[in-house]
Amino acid sequence: MHFELTDAQRAIQDSVGKICNRFSEDYWAGLDDVRAYPDEFVKALTDEGWLGLMIPEEYGGGGGTVSDAALVLEAITRHGAVAASAHAQMYTMGTLLRHGSTDQKARYLPRLASGELRLQAFGLTEPEAGSDTLSMRTTAVRDGDHYVINGGKIFTSRFQHSDVMMLIARTTPQEQAQHRTHGLSVFLVDLAEAGDAISVRPIKTMVNHETNQLFFDDLRVPANNLIGQEGEGFTYLLSGLNVERILVASECIGAGLWFVDRSARYAGERVVFGRAIGANQGVQFPIAQAFAQLEAASLMRWQAAAMFEAGHTKGYEANTAKLLASQASWAAANAAMDTFGGYGFAEEYGIERRFREARLFMVAPVSNNLVLAHIGQHVLGMPRTF
């Protein structure tokens, strides 16, 4: 086991950090005020190849690993930027690279690597099903050399800034499925070809996060855009979700360390009653506790990444990394708010914006309660809770 970053890994962090440093707190605060998408920031990441990092070199990508992508996203959030604006193109690669056809890879990967196409949207969650993915109602029915898709999705982020969407739909009615996880299929949807068959309702949230409710009305998708075998999509989906958990954990770790850095510095500079507030255990200890939690979460993140890269598909490590990292980041956010006091609520310090962002990952992309239920049932062998 190696617990130190290599020179190459540090170079990744440094390079991404230099990009982030070009976008000040004023840039992010300004976008937050008007709920705008960070087009310039995403373009900078794209132009320097970071969003194509996980695409193999033979298709024009960086040929990087999940661990490399984790370093990128951690660096983004540690420098105060918003990684959620761009992370989907990395985590959807888990499904496409492991289960996509040679033709699909040849058609899409070079254009994704070059930035000609953006794969930032992932249609999974539905209004009625929520986290109960297997109860989704969106259907895909074969019609000649196409599938016709009807239904809808919710919380589909970055749809308005994507050219391609990964979409999961039911190709076998639930009551006819061979087993509970059978009957779902994954598709690549060309949004330019979809046209009016997809309608969109933007959803305003407490953070600046471009997310939407989608409605599909006889959406026709070519059959050769089906990933893998019909009906086996849930298994393929796990490849992408495990990567998603690892990368979101990395975002949380970076954001948590940003809070720790800001809090520790401010606690050493802010003088009240004749002494720096950091000399008080009530201020110092929560910051130190959050830092320790972040370090522990980071180790689980690296274990999850190593296991994925070794070909493991079970999600305990990836889900646990997300659980621990989101909790540690939230602890750091609260410690920062307590440290800054009233100034933490002032927009000029940036704490309140990132405080709101930190809360999201306690419930997304999977609720921490569902992670605990997974551990209780599938790891500890206790009765099913849902």
Rank of each mutant, 00 (worst) to 15 (best):
T46R: 13
I19Y: 05
L51Q: 09
E357A: 08
M300D: 05
G152A: 03
V271G: 01
E210F: 13
F291Q: 10
E348N: 06
L96C: 05
A306C: 03
S131V: 13
G376F: 07
V283N: 05
G17T: 10
S326L: 11
N334M: 10
M362T: 09
E193A: 10
M206I: 14
A321K: 06
M382T: 13
D218N: 15
V66D: 01
G233T: 08
I287E: 08
V186L: 07
A296P: 09
L31V: 14
P383S: 13
L109R: 00
V34F: 11
Q9E: 15
G183E: 06
E230M: 00
L117E: 02
L5A: 12
F122L: 02
E128W: 11
Y236L: 02
M165V: 01
S67G: 12
E347N: 06
K153G: 00
L294C: 01
V16I: 15
A297Y: 13
Y59T: 01
L45A: 07
R354N: 12
A267P: 06
L112W: 09
R245A: 08
G311A: 02
Q213A: 13
T172Q: 05
G381P: 11
V248E: 07
E57Q: 12
H87Q: 15
T139C: 04
R262I: 08
R359K: 11
R137M: 04
T339D: 02
C252F: 11
P202D: 04
L219K: 03
W50S: 00
Y236T: 01
F361P: 01
